[in-house]
Structure formats: C-alpha cells, structure tokens
C-alpha cells in the first residue's frame, strides 16, 4: 500500500462520470490511480462500465456523439481532455477484444500504420527498425519475418492479436489499454498474450479489462472491481482477491454473480 504513493501515478482518474444518454451513467464518479510499469486489471460483470472506463483513458469513448463526460483524467499530472487526440493516443495505445489488423495492409504496414495514417514520414531504415523491434517485443518476429509483406489477416487469431499489440507499441506509448484481448482466443494463444503482457509491463503501463478472474489473478499487480458503473474496490490484486473489503467484491470473486 505504501509504495503506491512513492511515485507519481501515470494515470489519475478523478470523479469520472460518463453517460451515453443524458442522465444514464455507465460510469459513476470513479476515482482511481494507475501505477507506472504495472498491470492493472479492471473486472466486473458484463455491462458494468469496464469498457467505457477504459476507452475514456484515451478518449475513444468520444466517438459516440451524445456522450457526456464529467470529472477528469490526468496523464502524468496533465488533463487528457485539452490534449489533441493524436498526441493522447500516441501516448495511450489500445488493443481491442477482436483482433483487428487492417485487412488491406501487409503485416509490415500494419505495424507502422500509426505513422502512415497520421502522415508521419519515416525513412525506410527507421521503419524497418520499428517493425522489427515491435514484432520482437510481441514475440511475433520469428513467426512472421518470412512473410512481412503478406496481409496481416492471413495470420491466426492469436498472431493477429499480437500484431495488434505490435501496432500499438510501435508508437512507443506510455500506457497500453487492452479490452478483453484474449476473449476471442484459444487457451494457448491466451497464455502467449499473458506472458507477453508480463514482459511488456517493464516498458509500458498496462490497463487490462478482463472478465476472466483467474487471468486477473495470474497477471495483474493491481485490480479494480466495478459494479453498475461504480468502482467498488481497487487495490493490490493480492489484497483484493484474498481480503476483499466490500461484500459485492467478495460475492463476485466467489462466483455469486457475473
């Protein structure tokens, strides 16, 4: 508990409320912090606002036209809302539930898509280096180095998901957000992603939405438990799993609902 406060948190969420329609809050007055170089798992029954909270962290929730946001999120002490979304999303990358490589792009092009889609020009050798580094970091390099110029969609689901992680970290972000990244994958691909996240947290701060409790227990350092839009409990994963303070957390962890 004590060393949580020794370093400035990467993300600080302050009284965040989000409504898709006026008055109907999907996230209610959530305050929390995310420690640097840790994996934070957001858990809770489906529909409790996990995705909404996660997407707010790089303002992807703003894609919905009538969304209403109150409160604030600080990235390294600065509010993310006045920032340009390009700058913010370069610092806070995202991986989705279903692998979504760009189907018209090769594996190589997918990795550097963040640059090409934003018209950031790179020299060929810089690009090659970024591609190789990102693919090595997601342990995909050896599997795909022979077919860098084939379409990304020709890979297996687990490989595609790692390609999507590579695409997100090619920007060298500070934070990586993942929304149930393994729910569409088989157990072997899932464990590869989990191992990968354990490695990646050395460089990046990771926030992971999961409805798989054992996954949260296996790989996360900190956990948040949400219920009906509220953040019921947050803290070290070990503490939260062994001695939950709130009755609702305990009920969830023992499988009473969810």
């Amino acid at each position: 508990m004590s060393d949580t406060h020794t370093t400035e948190p990467v993300l600080k969420i302050e009284g965040l409320s989000i409504a898709y329609e006026p008055g109907r809050y999907a996230v209610k007055d959530v305050s929390a912090t995310v420690r640097r170089n840790s994996i934070t798992a957001i858990m809770g029954p489906s529909g409790c606002g996990k995705s909404t909270l996660l997407r707010a962290m790089n303002r992807m929730h703003e894609l919905y036209p009538n969304i209403e946001t109150r409160g604030d999120i600080l990235l390294d002490g600065k509010s993310i809302f006045p920032m340009s979304v390009i700058e913010l999303r370069r610092k806070v990358g995202m991986v989705f539930q279903r692998p979504n490589p760009f189907p018209n792009m090769t594996i190589y092009e997918n990795v550097v898509a963040g640059y090409s889609l934003n018209d950031i020009r790179l020299k060929k050798n810089q690009r090659d280096e970024i591609v190789e580094n990102a693919l090595r970091n997601v342990t995909l390099w050896d599997e795909v180095k022979e077919f860098l110029f084939r379409k990304g969609t020709f890979l297996s689901g687990g490989q595609q998901q790692r390609l999507c992680v590579a695409r997100a970290i090619a920007f060298n972000p500070e934070v990586l957000l993942l929304d149930e990244p393994t729910s569409a994958l088989d157990p072997i691909a899932t464990s590869k992603i989990e191992d990968l996240l354990g490695e990646l947290k050395k460089k990046y701060t990771i926030v992971l939405v999961t409805h798989n409790m054992s996954q949260a227990a296996r790989i996360s350092d900190d956990s948040m438990f949400m219920y009906l839009g509220e953040l019921v409990e947050a803290g070290r994963t070990e503490t939260l799993f062994t001695t939950p303070k709130d009755a609702r957390t305990e009920a969830y962890l023992t499988g009473k609902f969810g």
Binding site: L63, N100, P101, F102, A113, L117, N118
Partner: peptide, 20 residues
C-alpha cells in the same frame, strides 16, 4: 472494429475515410 483501430492510432476522421 476496423474504424476503431484507425481512431485508436489517433487517425483524424477524414484520413480514416481516405486511408482506411
């Protein structure tokens, strides 16, 4: 999900249309 992938990389709306 393809549109979201583009937006998550910070791609502006009109570039998402033209390039994705």
């Amino acid at each position: 999900t393809i549109r979201e992938a583009a937006f998550a990389l910070g791609t502006p709306y009109y570039k998402m249309i033209i390039k994705v």
